[in-house]
Nucleic acid binder design. Structure first.
Length: 239
DNA sequence: AAGCTACCCAACCGCCGGCCA
DNA sequence: TTGGCCGGCGGTTGGGTAGCT
């Protein structure tokens, strides 16, 4: 853009790139190729940091950069990929030819996050029912004494949970989660969470959620609803 | 027309991991 | 094994601009 057109304390240019600088950088990279960015400014005759040259090339000067509005198809893909990958902008950008991670990050932060926030505030909660373990055949598989309650979800694409719940192997398309006992370290809990998110993304559920309400002292929040792909988080205030 | 505000997005910053001597 | 260098990445900044009063 147009800001910060001045020099820093090192005497290096900062801020908006001039057409002359763009020309110098593009000519150099086209002739020599990408890489060795720390030496590029000196060799190309630019008064910039190597990092700045790299960023300018990747986000603006590189061939095949697609400029202009994000299409509806691209927007849908970004949403789905973000649901799957989180803020891994470079990975998301890798699935959108011609788009840069910076562009997608900006688009998300300025446009999509607001859209999704708006949707989130208007969607309905899933049906929630008390679940009686005695009537559930899966109970027979649970033997650990560390389990204080079970949560069985049948939510559509229930892809995120946010408290230390451990996902058990699914049976017949039903996901089970169990509370992790107190001796787990925070790091272990984060690992569990990470694994669970990946696991759950592969699931597709019905639109109902059963909770063992007697033991479960928390609440269920619907985090996101991306085009009917329900994303829930389960908060236990007793933890 | 002028002032104000919200939004957009290019660019910068700092952290982290990989590589190599 | 370790320390330095480099590139990549995500978060943040702040100037330009459009829209509103």
């Amino acid at each position: 853009m147009k800001q910060r057109a001045n020099c820093n304390e090192d005497g290096l240019n900062k801020g908006a790139w001039t057409a002359e600088e763009d020309e110098l950088l593009a000519s150099y990279v086209n002739a020599v190729g990408e890489g060795n960015w720390t030496s590029v400014p000196k060799k190309a005759g630019l008064n910039r940091r190597g990092k700045s040259c790299r960023l300018r090339w990747l986000n603006y000067l590189r061939p095949n950069i697609k400029r202009g509005n994000i299409s509806v198809e691209e927007e849908e893909l970004i949403i789905r990929l973000h649901k799957l990958l989180g803020n891994r902008w470079s990975l998301i950008a890798g699935r959108l030819p011609g788009r840069t991670d910076n562009e997608i990050k900006n688009y998300w932060n300025t446009t999509l996050s607001k859209k999704i926030q708006t949707k989130k505030s208007t969607i309905n909660m899933p049906n929630i029912k008390a679940w009686n373990p005695k009537t559930n055949p899966l109970e027979a598989n649970i033997t650990s004494s560390s389990i204080s309650y079970l949560i069985q979800t049948k939510a559509q694409n229930c892809s995120k949970t946010s408290n230390p719940l451990h996902t058990l192997p699914s049976t017949n398309g039903v996901m089970q989660t169990q509370q992790i006992s107190g001796q787990n370290s925070q790091d272990e809990l984060m690992e569990e969470k990470k694994d669970k998110v990946l696991d759950c993304d592969l699931f597709s559920f019905d639109d109902e959620m059963w909770i063992d309400g007697f033991e479960f002292g928390g609440e269920i929040n619907v985090v996101d609803d991306y085009d009917n792909d329900l994303v829930c988080s389960l908060f236990d205030s007793n933890l």
